[in-house]
Simulated scan of single mutants.
Amino acid sequence: MLELVKSKATAFWNEEDGLGTLELILIIGVIIIIALIFKDQIKALVERLLKNVSNKSNEFFE
């Protein structure tokens, strides 16, 4: 039983079916849509993180 599970897991791991062009386009499309939906939140988060980095680096170098 254990050997059967091991052989199935090995066969699954060694399976070399790659992603097709359609799948890649769909994944990129979904990522772009999510980025557009949350554009304002992402921008605010990045600005807040950069401000924190700037403040911390100023504290360190003073």
Rank of each mutant, 00 (worst) to 15 (best):
L24C: 10
V46H: 00
E3A: 09
I42L: 13
A44N: 13
L45Q: 06
F12Q: 08
T10R: 13
L26P: 02
L19H: 02
G18H: 03
I37T: 06
N58D: 14
L45N: 06
M1Y: 05
I33E: 04
D40T: 11
I34H: 01
L49D: 00
N14L: 10
Q41C: 00
I34T: 09
S54Y: 03
L50F: 09
F38L: 09
I27P: 02
I32P: 01
A9D: 03
I32S: 01
A35L: 11
F38C: 04
N58Q: 13
K51E: 11
A44P: 01
I42F: 08
E62F: 10
T10H: 06
K6I: 08
I31T: 07
D40S: 12
E62S: 15
N14G: 04
N58A: 14
I25C: 06
I25W: 05
Q41G: 05
N58L: 12
L26I: 09
T21F: 10
S54G: 08
A35F: 06
V30P: 01
A44V: 02
V5M: 13
E62L: 13
N52L: 14
L36T: 01
I27L: 14
G20V: 00
A35P: 02
K43D: 05
E3F: 08
N14K: 15
F60T: 09
I28S: 12
S54H: 05
L45K: 10
I37R: 07
D17Q: 09
T21C: 03
T10M: 10
T10P: 00
K8H: 07
I28G: 08
D40Y: 01
A9H: 04
G29W: 00
F61M: 10
G18R: 06
V5T: 10
K56V: 12
K8T: 07
D17K: 14
W13A: 15
L50K: 14
F38E: 10
N52W: 11
F60S: 07
Q41R: 10
F12V: 11
K43E: 08
I28L: 15
E23A: 13
D40C: 00
L24R: 13
V5D: 10
A9S: 09
F60E: 09
Q41D: 07
I42Q: 00
V53R: 11
K56Q: 11
W13I: 12
I34K: 10
E3G: 12
S7C: 02
Q41L: 03
V53W: 03
I42G: 01
V5G: 06
A35M: 07
K8M: 13
V30D: 01
G18C: 02
N14F: 00
F12M: 11
V53Y: 04
L49H: 01
L22R: 14
W13T: 13
E15P: 01
I32V: 13
Q41F: 00
L2H: 08
D17P: 01
V46A: 10
E16M: 04
E47I: 12
W13K: 15
L49T: 04
L49E: 04
L19E: 03
L19G: 02
S7Y: 07
